[in-house]
Design a protein around this nucleic acid. Sequence first.
DNA 1: CGTACTTTTGAATCGCATCAAATCTGGTGG
DNA 2: CCACCAGATTTGATGCGATTCAAAAGTACG
Lengths: 211, 211
Amino acid sequence: MDWRSLIASQPALAVIPSKLCAVAEHRDIEAGETLFRLGDPLQGVFCVVAGEVRLIRRARNGAEIILQRSRGGFFAEASLGTKAYHCDAVAAEAGAVLRFPARDFRAALDEDVKFRDAWMTHLAREVRKLRAQCERLSLKSAAQRIVHYIDSEGTDGVAILTESRKAWAAELGLTHEALYRTLRRLQADGTLRIDANRITLGQPQGSVHPR
Amino acid sequence: MDWRSLIASQPALAVIPSKLCAVAEHRDIEAGETLFRLGDPLQGVFCVVAGEVRLIRRARNGAEIILQRSRGGFFAEASLGTKAYHCDAVAAEAGAVLRFPARDFRAALDEDVKFRDAWMTHLAREVRKLRAQCERLSLKSAAQRIVHYIDSEGTDGVAILTESRKAWAAELGLTHEALYRTLRRLQADGTLRIDANRITLGQPQGSVHPR
DNA sequence: CGTACTTTTGAATCGCATCAAATCTGGTGG
DNA sequence: CCACCAGATTTGATGCGATTCAAAAGTACG
């Protein structure tokens, strides 16, 4: 399948000027593949067309810290302001990415107002997401972080997980054991309802009657 | 004193187009004053001319979470992509801010290439700073967070604090008691040297001899 | 069908939060 | 200048909760 039609089908990517698309390098990736590493010289801005890419850092003890998960859309935005990547990029599952040379990307931003607006909006959203994560990581208990996650990442108290619990634990800054145990406890006391990857925040009890 | 000359004297603000400066609203602020609150409708982009402004959120238990500290330069950048502020802005000390209406700010970005580049760089730096903070908050021990802070915020293993320890503790996601105790322990075992607000990371022992 | 990984549970430990309280600090007003 | 106050700094004691280490069971994939 032609990847250009894939792009056109994704609203978030439709704003990419055709001129910029023309110089993009398409690349298929397999699960576990590393796109770039901390310290690598910049190769430009990336964009996930299919699959999931994660920006990660590794703590001294080897624990993996997830800085960003990207399923469709740009990542490595911070590249436009520096000389080297400041984290690793690893594919969480098989998929495909586009790479835009920084020079062409800048030129496109200069020329295309719509594209520039979309880019600004994208950056603003990224900043907000990161702030939310900082806020979440500042919470001291596992239960609070879980509820905060559903509140801010989910819709109407319902979050659909797109990652393993182990990866979720890493994103929440917890060990997977702590996450499992806390989930069970929250489900037991009625705070949460868990159906596979669908996590529902319990209704404020009493006011809502089933049926 | 004329605030326009203040701006001209700060390199980071010199890139602001004069046309945009002309429509800016200048406002003196005193310590503790709130500029806007979570949920307030957008008033535009702000810029700190003097003093320090903090973006904060409050946890349910009243604990203060510091999302960003701004001493000179723009803040509330995420505003350009949303309808309402997503956190509180409070002055940490007396100072002054400028407010740029969103419409004029966008227009300036459209017209002035230099300003746009500076803005992109600013956003990229913000993203990197937030990622660093997420990484730091993912560390599980107080000592690791402190060392990470000095590594990433300081220069050559030396960090100059511009805030109280209590505020620093909040930024590190710790209670102030934990911070005090850990600082003392790290100083005792030679990992750190502390001179008032100057915190020095201990040399990798052996290679460097004082005289 | 075996291997690698996730999910799940258990037990022990340790570090941080919490509550308390004393001291120190800078700033205000009498 | 001193009394006073609010806030930051510092130390202590205690308990909880998350980490850590361990191991079993489940699951996906070739």
